[in-house]
């Protein structure tokens, strides 16, 4: 009988079950698997038994206590938002940066600062490259490259494949902006570090993005193509409830698509994901509902605290309090996602 390889196990547990989150962790540097138009595709069978593909996948076994011990030096905090230092609101002080971002440009401002201060030497971000239809991971090492990746993509993008690219390029302090599933994968990389690549140090900064769900990028592209043409889309926005629409901003203005039409395009994996806020990130950033131009910012680790303090001190970031009523609302939303996942 043939032994079960990591790839076999991944196929069985995740890919064949339709549970791939399209995070990209398995495909980076692997000749046996690739991404194609938003899907993870197995090209050939790999026989490696202790491979990274299965171990680093966010959809396989996840030990929250072990990851918490690694990141926060304490057991997993089962509160709605995970372990945190504080929750505040923020926006990029530079209006040009704020305008690039989805909410208040906080993520872009933080990554720019981290690069400038040498906290990171490269940033793995998600971007739709000119002329391309699908978002992908890029390794950014300049201000321009970081700014070009601003804005939410609303899809699974396989962007963690670029982490392998950054590692192969020899980057020693990599900052990554990712969805909660990707944050989990990044922490599994650091925890298991199967090839002793010093990933705990080299994945130097993890910025989590709030996420309720993401679209399958292939299905989303297929949905958009006949309606908007290939390249005219500038930005997506989901206005706060009760709008229940996706705003598609094109050269010809904004069009509203009812979210109910889009729900079938949501990745199956999102329905089983319990994490709305990226509970294991250094900092997590999301929209501030009802406050256009601002973000909700959860500071979780000492590195996160230091980064925010530096950002405020150097005038990169403006912060404000996050009212208790909003916090309760945020927690409620996070618990709702957790509940949905437990019932999935």
């Amino acid at each position: 009988m043939e032994r079960v390889s990591s790839q076999d196990a991944l196929k069985r547990a995740v890919l064949d079950e339709g549970l791939c989150a399209a995070c990209g962790a398995c495909v980076g540097g692997c000749p046996y698997m690739t991404t194609f138009r938003g899907k993870t595709v197995v090209l050939d069978r790999c026989t490696v038994e202790h491979g990274r593909c299965y171990r680093y996948c966010p959809m396989t076994e996840f030990d929250p206590d072990a990851v918490s011990a690694l990141v926060f030096e304490r057991p997993h905090d089962t509160e709605a938002l995970g372990h945190l230092d504080r929750v505040i609101s923020s926006q990029a002080a530079d209006p040009a940066v704020a305008a690039l971002g989805q909410g208040g440009g906080t993520v872009t401002a933080l990554m720019l600062l981290a690069l400038e201060e040498g906290i990171i030497d490269s940033a793995v971000l998600t971007r739709i490259l000119p002329g391309e239809e699908y978002a992908r991971g890029v390794v950014a090492t300049t201000t321009e490259e970081i700014q070009a990746a601003a804005g939410s993509k609303f899809v699974g993008s396989h962007s963690l494949a670029a982490v392998r690219q950054a590692l192969d390029a020899g980057h020693r302090r990599i900052g990554v902006v990712g969805l909660p599933c990707q944050v989990r994968s990044l922490r599994k990389m650091a925890l298991y570090d199967l090839k002793q690549e010093n990933l705990k140090e080299r994945i130097a900064l993890v910025v989590g993005l709030f996420c309720n769900w993401a679209f399958s990028s292939r299905d989303f592209a297929a949905f958009l193509a006949p309606r908007f043409g290939p390249t005219s889309i500038k930005r997506f926005q989901i206005p706060p409830p009760p709008a229940n629409v996706l705003e598609v901003e094109t050269d010809d203005g904004a069009t509203r698509v009812p979210l109910d039409e889009l729900r079938p395009l949501i990745q199956e994996s999102c329905r089983t994901c319990p994490d709305m806020t990226g509970e294991f990130a250094d900092v997590s950033v999301g929209m501030y509902e009802g406050m256009p131009g601002w973000n909700t910012l959860i500071v979780r680790t000492s590195l996160g605290t230091r980064l925010i303090e530096d950002a405020v001190r150097t005038g990169r970031l403006r912060t404000d309090a996050f009212p208790d009523s909003n916090l309760e609302h945020l927690k409620k939303a996070a618990l709702q996602k957790r509940k949905r996942a437990s019932q999935a």
Binding site: S6, G29, C30, P31, Y32, D44, C46, T47, V48, H50, G51, R52, C53, L194, K195
Partner: peptide, 13 residues
């Protein structure tokens, strides 16, 4: 060679 990320891709596959 036989490491994860190759597993003798050229000679085995």
């Amino acid at each position: 060679g036989e490491e994860c990320g190759c597993n003798r891709f050229c000679t085995r596959v």
